[in-house]
Structure formats: structure tokens, C-alpha cells
Design a protein around this nucleic acid. Structure first.
Length: 470
RNA sequence: CGGGCUGUGGCGCAGUUUGGUCAGCGCACCUGCUUUGGGAGCAGGGGGUCGCCGGUUCAAAUCCGGCCAGCCCGACCA
């Protein structure tokens, strides 16, 4: 009964560590078609909780949910030239249906700007219909060369918001609002993952957008992960789909649009941003299970005490699971809950019961403490809040320790191998961006020196965040 | 699409060079007993047309030919 290695250590082989977690924490499996994934119940529970928190914020931002078809006429994509050029290499195209060749091939949506525009143009008539704010939760398909579960799969789950506004200014502000009030707030306050925000460079921009904003997080191997994007689409789609409205002066005008999304990739980000060599570490606000109560041994009184304590905890609003599967060894069960990253583990054994107490272990720190059964529920409520705050604080300080300010290309190249390099965009420039690409380093985003979002990409004195990424 | 590699129970692999008690190991799974405060021990057990097709041979996981699939490295991506 000694402690043995469960996962490949992160230092030894980070991708292997990630794979091990997917399997051992029962998060997901590969699907039979390359690039597809099966999301298992625990992995899906994480996603569902993300959905609920993001959806609430989207609704608060004024957008309404709707649903558009999975199949899009090929001709729709062809209307916006940059859009179709950007996506055509990764499209799944259906040419057969009902046993016959189709007159016009059908695209499996890689994103829905086109089909949503087709309907916006129908529904929007007057400036009184604006802003038009809509969102859908859906699956999309982008044929991927190098898939990795959650991070880059051929089919993935996401939310895509699409809006139409009377002015460029209003559209820009709304895209920024989503970035800050929906995405950044969700990621930092629920996921406990700090993000750097900024504009994508022209080469990293969404196909068809005039500007793309992104949220970039640092994983435990110091690589970057784009956690979400919010785009300013300008009037390109509106022009091609004739999405117009009549303004107060009686003029026919094109709308200004945005689109924005976060995906099941965030599950991968959660794993890689907080995980350690024992498994996942899930922040309390997200955790499907916040507390697991483990019956140490098969003893009627012990099991009963576990359930009774669990009931009290549920009564104060906690999400609790009782593990009374005493047929499985104690150590094994502890390990399994650690792998799943449950924030707090409570052990109740005969010795605890004699003292009317319980042993409480915090997943994030491994810290053990003894708490009386009577005080446990209330104690847990505050402890979970502390853990949530501590996880974000720890992630921020760790990330900041891996960001290096540099002044030239050579330094940027070097620093990007072991963290994020921050360099004046005027210094780096598009040529520097191309040079960095040789080392698989990209400019993740452009931001102001204080980390805030610039007015636009041409604003002077911007900083480029450079890193290797997923 | 260019370069390197691999296909053997659910997973990870050995065996292939030197055809013949090689259908085997670890983990997982099932049964029983003992266990249970950090991945338990012992005993027993189930499960594989050795990627597919063809060829050589008395005999093929092993040799030959073809096909298929997958992995890793390079150009695109939430």
C-alpha cells in the first residue's frame, strides 16, 4: 500500500500527462473517426457547468438563444471571399443525400456567420430592430490535421454569438463587452484562469473579420491556449448577404456585425491550467462535485455518518458526493477523486467518529485538517470560497513569473521557448512575427502596456505577447 | 501532401532477425477468502480469426507481394 505513480509527471512528458488524465479521470475517449471525441459523463459535467455560467452571462449581455441548421449551402460560404478561403481547407462537404448526388453540395457548419446572416437580412428591416443580438449553442466541424481531445477536435461543441448594430462603434463596443463581461469574467471568476486580452495580428485574424480579440491563458507547460475570441466583422458579411436596415432618415444602410465564441476547448484549458502530477484541480465554482465524503471502511455507523454529513452540506448549498464503495481500497478511492480534481475530500473513519470529527483534505494544497462534524458544513462554505480565490491568485503569480519583457527578436525567440515573451509591437513587426513562426512561436495578441484592450490594432505603443501555443 | 515509424485480448507491450509447445506478459476485468486511515494480498478464472487479402511451405504473428489503418515530425486552426 505504498504511494505509486499514477500519471506521467508533467516535467517528464506534458502531453503524456494530459493523455493520462483524460483516461484516468474518465473525461473523454477518442471517437472512431479520427479527430472526433467521446465526452464521458465527468468531462461533460464540467462542460455543462461551463455552459450554464457562460450562458447566464450571455443572457445578461442581452443576447437571446436560437438554433440554426447544421447544414449550410455551399454557395453561402462562397459569398464572403476571405471567409471561404480561410475555411475551405477544413470543411466537411456532403455531396450525397438520399442515395443520390446533390445538386448543390452541403457544408457541415464550421461556424455560422453565413447562414445566420441569411436570416438576419430577412428579419432586420429597420433601425428599430437593432441591435440584433443572438446566440446559439451548437456543434461545429472543422477537419483537423492534428487533433487533440478537447483542444483541437474535428467536431467540437461551442457557443457562437452573432450580432448586428447600427454603427461600427457600437459593434466594437459590444464585441469588447462580450470579451470582458462574459468571457474574461467567466474565466477568471469561475475557472480561476487568468487571461491576457488583446487583438490578433492580421495573420491570426478570423477569416472575414476586420478585427479579432482573444483571451489567452498560460498552461502549466508555459504554452498559450486561446480560450475564446470575439470578432468585429465590419460590413463584409452584411454586404454579401444584403443585411440592411432603414435608418431614421429613410436611408438603406448595411449593419455592422460581431461574432464571438468559446468552445469545449476550455475543458482542455481547465485541465492544463490547474492540473498537477496528481491530476486535475477543479475550482470550486465550477466543480460538479465540490466535496467528496469518503467512508474509510465498511462500517454501518461510518457510512451512516457520511450520508448524514453529506445531507447537511447539501442543505447549505454544496455539491456533494458520498463515496461508500468500501469494496475498493481506501487509497485507490482517494487517488481517483484526486485525479478528478474534487476541491475537498472529507474522510470519515471509526477514529473520526469516536471524536465526532472528520479529516478534511484540500486538493489544491494537499493540506489536511481536522474539523468537528457539527462545524464542517459551514466551514466548507468559506473554505471553498478561499480555494476559489487562491487558485486564481496562484495561477496569476505563476503565469506572471513566466512572462519576460524583451527588447529584440533574439530575446523574444529565446523567452518564448520557456514562457511568454512581451515585446514592443513596433519593434517586432510583421517581419518579426514571420521570423518567430520558424520556431513555432506566434504573436498571441497585441495589448497595451497596462494589459488593457487597445482601441484598434494600429494604436501606437502596443505590446506583443509571443508564445508557443496549442 | 513530403520525411520517420507502427499495426498482437479493453489499455500498454514482448515475440518477427533464426518459420515448428509463442498465443504470452503487465495493467484492467470476473470469483473467493483475507483486507480497508494513501492506487491492497493470495488463489482461481474469462477474454485475442496476431490490421486485411493473396502467395510460399508439411507448417506463418514470424518469409514474400499488395492493400488498409494509425502514430510522430513539417504548411492551416475555437
Amino acid at each position: 500500500m505504498s504511494k505509486q505513480r499514477v500519471l506521467t509527471p508533467q516535467d517528464e512528458d506534458f502531453p503524456a500527462w494530459y493523455q493520462d488524465i483524460l483516461n484516468k479521470a474518465e473525461l473523454a475517449d477518442n471517437g472512431p473517426v479520427r479527430g472526433t471525441m467521446v465526452i464521458r459523463p465527468y468531462g461533460f459535467a464540467l462542460w455543462e457547468r461551463m455552459q450554464a455560467a457562460v450562458n447566464q452571462r450571455i443572457v445578461d449581455a442581452g443576447a437571446e438563444n436560437a438554433y440554426f441548421p447544421l447544414f449550410i449551402p455551399q454557395s453561402y460560404l462562397n459569398r464572403e471571399s476571405e471567409h471561404v478561403e480561410g475555411f475551405s481547407p477544413e470543411l466537411a462537404v456532403i455531396t450525397m443525400g438520399g442515395g443520390r448526388e446533390l445538386a448543390e453540395p452541403v457544408i457541415v457548419r464550421p461556424t455560422s456567420e453565413t447562414i445566420i446572416n441569411a436570416y438576419m437580412s430577412k428579419w432586420i428591416q429597420s433601425y428599430r430592430d437593432l441591435p440584433f443580438l443572438i446566440n446559439q449553442w451548437a456543434n461545429v466541424v472543422r477537419w483537423e490535421m492534428r487533433p487533440r481531445i478537447f483542444l483541437r477536435t474535428t467536431e467540437f461543441l461551442w457557443q457562437e454569438g452573432h450580432t448586428a448594430h447600427v454603427s461600427r462603434q457600437e459593434a466594437r463596443e459590444y464585441a469588447a463587452k462580450i470579451l470582458h463581461e462574459v468571457y474574461q469574467d467567466f474565466m477568471e471568476s469561475v475557472l480561476g484562469i487568468p487571461v491576457l486580452i488583446g487583438y490578433k495580428t492580421a495573420s491570426e485574424r478570423f477569416p472575414g473579420a476586420i478585427n479579432s480579440m482573444s483571451l489567452e491563458a498560460m498552461m502549466r507547460d508555459a504554452k498559450a491556449l486561446q480560450m475564446g475570441t470575439s470578432h468585429e466583422l465590419g460590413q463584409g458579411f452584411a454586404t454579401m448577404f444584403n443585411t440592411t436596415y432603414l435608418d431614421a432618415e429613410g436611408n438603406q444602410e448595411y449593419v455592422w456585425q460581431t461574432s464571438w465564441g468559446v468552445s469545449s476547448r476550455m475543458v482542455g484549458g481547465l485541465i492544463m491550467a490547474h492540473g498537477d502530477d496528481l491530476g486535475m484541480v477543479v475550482p470550486p465554482r465550477l466543480a460538479p462535485i465540490q466535496v467528496v465524503v469518503i467512508a474509510v471502511r465498511d462500517d454501518g455507523a461510518v457510512v451512516e455518518a457520511c450520508h448524514s454529513l453529506a445531507n447537511e452540506m447539501v442543505a447549505v448549498g454544496l455539491r456533494v458526493k458520498v463515496d461508500d464503495k468500501t469494496g475498493t481500497g481506501f487509497g485507490r478511492r482517494c487517488t481517483n477523486w484526486e485525479l478528478k480534481g474534487v476541491p475537498i475530500r472529507i474522510e470519515i473513519g471509526p477514529r473520526d467518529l469516536e471524536q465526532q470529527q472528520t479529516t478534511l483534505i484540500t486538493r489544491m494544497t494537499g493540506e489536511k485538517q481536522t474539523v468537528s462534524l457539527a462545524a464542517a458544513p459551514q466551514h466548507l462554505v468559506t473554505l471553498l470560497e478561499d480555494i476559489q480565490d487562491n487558485m486564481l491568485a496562484a495561477a496569476i503569480s505563476w503565469r506572471d513569473s513566466k512572462i519576460v519583457d524583451v527588447v529584440n527578436l533574439a530575446e523574444a525567440r529565446e523567452a518564448s521557448q520557456v514562457g511568454f515573451a512581451r515585446i514592443a509591437w513596433e519593434m517586432l513587426g510583421t517581419q518579426g512575427e514571420v521570423a518567430l513562426a520558424e520556431d513555432a512561436v506566434t504573436v498571441r495578441c497585441l495589448q497595451r502596456a497596462d494589459g488593457s484592450l487597445p482601441e484598434d490594432i494600429d494604436e501606437p505603443n502596443l505590446l506583443a505577447i509571443c508564445a508557443k501555443s496549442y
